[in-house]
Design a protein around this nucleic acid. Structure first.
Lengths: 201, 201
DNA sequence: CCGTGGAATGAAACATGTTCTAGGGGTGTA
DNA sequence: TACACCCCTAGAACATGTTTCATTCCACGG
């Protein structure tokens, strides 16, 4: 828990950090949070344990770091196939569906990451903050249709709420309380409530 | 992580479980999550370590168990001084404010509990489910004014959303991203959006 | 070419959650 | 009373996150 730099875009240049992340992903994919034993991560990525701790403050920090990888994947996904819902509400729901799908595609990994993020460790704040900002931008960009206006302030507020719902539900999913569909379902329900009777656009 | 009964109302009859919980609270109050060392809990409550594990599946389970205590406090609080907002929306916001206040009153403890709850450990699901149900009932009872009708289905949906927002924000609070006021603030904002232009009642 | 400083390494040490074991003590029953 | 059963206890044992240390390696400036 001592001082440490922050991989972010860094992740892409620092070879060791990259290998460490990859190893963590590999381990988490198959065995989840508990399978990510840092000694194993170190060995699998061909570095010493101390090096892992040089790059990441803690196990949680490492797993949260995976978010930056997911982010890249998400950007690509949205770039490749833009959302095609007719209304903004529709696109919003599709967007969260896509996010959820991506995160839940490899359930063990997803759970491990969410769990780490939910820890609320003080040290994770910065990394999470970054992710949050980037995600917000990503969503705003993605739900914006061809010819509609910019996302209004009120829509940003709604978006914030939806993100909260999404996060809560993901935590529920992590606890195996229900499946990914229900996560999306609840976000959609919330979105409908928020966009309300007043119609969308 | 083996089989274990569930303190709930149990908490109130099982003397040992009670002492264990009390000790955990005492430790968490002053030192937070990390200060709740199970050996210390055992010693402080005058039982053997094995007994702690007989009552609670894990450290997180133990801390989540504290929620059942908080629940009692909350019930008393709402019984003693009912919410007095004029509209249901107002009472709703007051309600969440009260919940937040209670949980954040002893910050270290609160954080420890939230953190444990957010872990998403499979084993915690049952206990959390119970708490969730009880909390829902509590809120529904509390926001119901003297002469308004029952809480409608749509309002239950809104409530669900608000709970999600609340939870997410509490996790944020846990990470020291912001203070309790902001937690309440965001819930209030969401509530306003949900109750929308169409006026309340 | 040589020396220096910062980073990586390997291994040990520590802290703590979790599990296991052997034994003790009480309670109800034959 | 003697026995069987169950919970409790004390403590060891184990797994793993985290820290520390001495050593080695490497790149770079002189």
């Amino acid at each position: 828990m001592t001082a440490v730099p922050l991989p972010g875009e860094l992740t892409l240049v620092d070879d060791r950090a990259r290998r460490i992340l990859d190893a963590a992903v590999r381990l988490a994919e198959t065995g989840g949070f508990s399978a990510v034993r840092l000694r194993d991560v170190a060995q699998a990525s061909g570095v010493a344990l101390g090096t892992v701790y040089k790059r990441f403050r803690s196990k949680e920090d490492l797993l949260v770091g995976v978010l930056s990888l997911e982010l890249v994947a998400l950007r690509e996904r949205f770039a490749a196939e833009p959302l095609q819902g007719a209304t903004r509400l529709e696109r919003l729901v599709q967007c969260f569906a896509a996010l959820t799908e991506t995160l839940c595609a490899r359930p063990h990994l997803g759970r491990a990451v969410i769990r780490s993020a939910a820890t609320g460790e003080n040290a994770l704040a910065e990394r999470l903050q970054r992710f949050h900002t980037a995600l917000m931008e990503l969503i705003v960009g993605a739900i914006r249709g061809r010819e509609d206006g910019p996302v209004s302030a009120i829509e940003l507020e709604r978006l914030t709420v939806l993100e909260d719902v999404w996060f809560s539900r993901l935590v529920g999913w992590t606890g195996e309380l229900y499946g990914p569909e229900l996560v999306v379902e609840q976000v959609a329900r919330a979105a409908r409530l928020l966009y309300g009777a007043e119609g969308d656009v």
